[in-house]
């Protein structure tokens, strides 16, 4: 009788030990893989489109894969470096600990940015790089100058990501109600997943000048394929810088409002 009981417990424990060791690690591993995989589902769908039609006007399949990879990398970096910022704000305002960010020996925005690290973003960065490399290996190759310009615009795109996170953070500070503010901004970002030329003129203007999310992939790709020209400075870079400035001003406004409301 006793031996039976011991065997039962032993089996149970063995299983539990195996399971327990893998549990959170499993979740961690699956989380990363899930994001990684999800980033390939879109391109898979586009592959199917190119298999059965002429595809997207002005873009070969390989070019479009570079486009998607670029979008995935910029958004990936945005998540990786900054996503934790607004998340922390919402959580800390809810539990009342936000003030610690105001009393640290740094500018609150800098301090928060330092806490922006969100590891899952790394999956998207890696996925994006894989896509870009694949695309590059299936295209004719681009002049070095174009590549430099492309990389420069990528940096601008990451700057833009920071601006978005600052805006989301500011909104979260003013209106802590729900996570809906993320939905709003991420929703508009979706437009940048596709090249601007498929949209009408109204949207193109909006996505270039007013909410310049087209910096995320469209304009880097343009400089890659067509080369840099001075127009880009006015059409692309200046709107992004202005947008960044506005986001910081809005943040300052949000902090003032928060402090005047007594926190």
């Amino acid at each position: 009788m006793k031996l039976n009981q011991y065997l039962k417990i032993w089996k149970h424990v063995l299983f539990l030990e195996l399971a327990a060791d893998m549990i959170y690690k499993l979740n961690f591993f699956i989380k990363f893989s899930a994001v990684f995989l999800a980033d390939f589902l879109g391109p898979l769908g586009i592959l199917f489109i190119y298999q059965h039609s002429a595809g997207i006007p002005g873009w070969t399949f390989a070019e479009f894969i570079i486009f998607t990879g670029t979008f995935t990398v910029t958004l990936g970096f945005g998540r990786l470096l900054f996503l934790e910022m607004p998340i922390r704000i919402i959580q800390s305002v809810r539990d009342g600990s936000f003030d610690k960010y105001l009393t640290a020996p740094f500018h609150p925005l800098t301090y928060l940015t330092m806490h922006g690290w969100f590891t899952e973003g790394a999956s998207s960065v890696i996925a994006g790089i894989v896509l870009i490399i694949w695309g590059l290996s299936h295209t004719a190759g681009y002049p070095a100058l174009n590549i430099v310009a492309y990389l420069f615009l990528l940096l601008m795109a990451i700057l833009f990501q920071h601006a978005i996170m600052i805006l989301i953070s500011a909104c979260a500070l003013i209106y802590v109600k729900s996570w809906g503010v993320f939905e709003l901004f991420f929703g508009i970002e979706k437009f940048a997943r596709y090249p601007l030329n498929i949209f009408g003129p109204g949207l193109r203007i909006f996505l270039t000048f007013f909410f310049p999310v087209a910096i995320s992939a469209n304009y880097p790709l343009e400089t890659l394929t067509k080369g840099f020209n001075t127009q880009i400075i006015f059409v692309v870079i200046i709107p992004v810088l202005i947008f960044y400035l506005i986001s910081i001003l809005f943040w300052n406004h949000a902090i003032k409002k928060y402090q005047s409301a007594g926190g």
């Binding site: 399971a19 549990i23 959170y24 499993l26 979740n27 961690f28 591993f29 699956i30 989380k31 990363f32 893989s33 899930a34 994001v35 995989l37 999800a38």
Partner: peptide
Amino acid sequence: LKRIQGLRRL
């Protein structure tokens, strides 16, 4: 499994 965020996202 307690934590299933990865599974959910998948």
